[in-house]
């Protein structure tokens, strides 16, 4: 379980996150929802140790983040993270070189599934393909947890369907997933837990299936209620 307890973060003098608390369990897909700039990316970066916090704690399976946990938690950011001059194949080699948890067979599988060519340079990839490469690099690690930042932003609809199909496949399976998005409609049916962020705090946390069954509301319905309140 990834536990985020009361974290806060300031950029300059401004408070971006205030006392944010939630948790993400293995085998579940947790979605951080909120408008652009509310701090969703910052939460993911904080979990991955890519952005320092001003307060609060983060625990992954009860332990604070250290270098070993990078074999257990993978992050798919919303930016391209490989050098422009590198070739797709070289990116895979690089990951294999450095990670024990790299799964070459899965990488090959995803390579053909996403129809990416090893000799292509990263700089020549379209936005859609670059996002797919990012996803490939994250998914090919045998990690317990997977964090994804806006996996669908700026992607064409067909690529979006391809990526969405990954979520239901064996590739996700037992992992705990935290993803952020401001477009919930595409994946509402996949999400187990929703965390609504507004102005840097958690407004509401709920299990989507429960709410659907008990109150007949979709996630969007809940969002409307919360954000308009």
């Amino acid at each position: 379980m990834i536990e985020v307890k009361g974290i806060s973060k300031k950029y300059g003098g401004k408070s971006v996150l205030r006392d944010v608390t939630f948790s993400a369990e293995r085998g579940q897909i947790t979605c951080l929802i909120g408008i652009n700039g509310v701090g969703k990316s910052t939460v993911l970066k904080a979990i991955m140790g890519l952005a320092p916090l001003n307060g609060g704690q983060i625990r992954i399976d009860g332990k604070p983040l250290d270098k070993h946990l990078y074999e257990k938690v993978a992050f798919v950011p919303d930016v391209i993270t490989m050098p422009a001059s590198m070739k797709v194949g070289e990116c895979l080699d690089w990951m294999r070189d450095f990670y024990r948890s790299w799964n070459p067979e899965r990488a090959a599988e995803l390579l053909s599934f996403f129809r990416l060519n090893p000799p292509d340079r990263v700089s020549s990839l379209s936005k859609g393909n670059a996002s797919k490469l990012n996803l490939l690099l994250g998914l090919s690690l045998d990690t317990d947890y997977l964090l994804m930042d806006e996996p669908f932003s700026g992607i064409d609809i067909f690529s979006r369907e391809q990526i969405a199909s990954v979520f239901t496949s064996h590739l996700i399976e037992e992992r705990g997933v935290i993803l952020t998005t401001h477009e919930i409609s595409d994946i509402e049916h996949l999400v187990d837990k929703a965390v609504l962020l507004d102005q840097g705090t958690v407004r509401m946390t709920f299990m989507c299936e429960e709410v659907r069954m008990n109150e007949g509301k979709s996630v969007l319905d809940v969002m409307r209620e919360v954000y308009r309140a």
């Binding site: 270098k67 930016v79 391209i80 993270t81 422009a84 024990r100």
Partner: peptide, 17 residues
């Protein structure tokens, strides 16, 4: 530099920073 922030990759390596 640029859009390719390799720093993400390097800082997420399972090795002492």
């Amino acid at each position: 530099l640029g859009k390719n922030t390799f720093a993400y990759r390097l800082l997420m390596l399972p090795t002492a920073r």
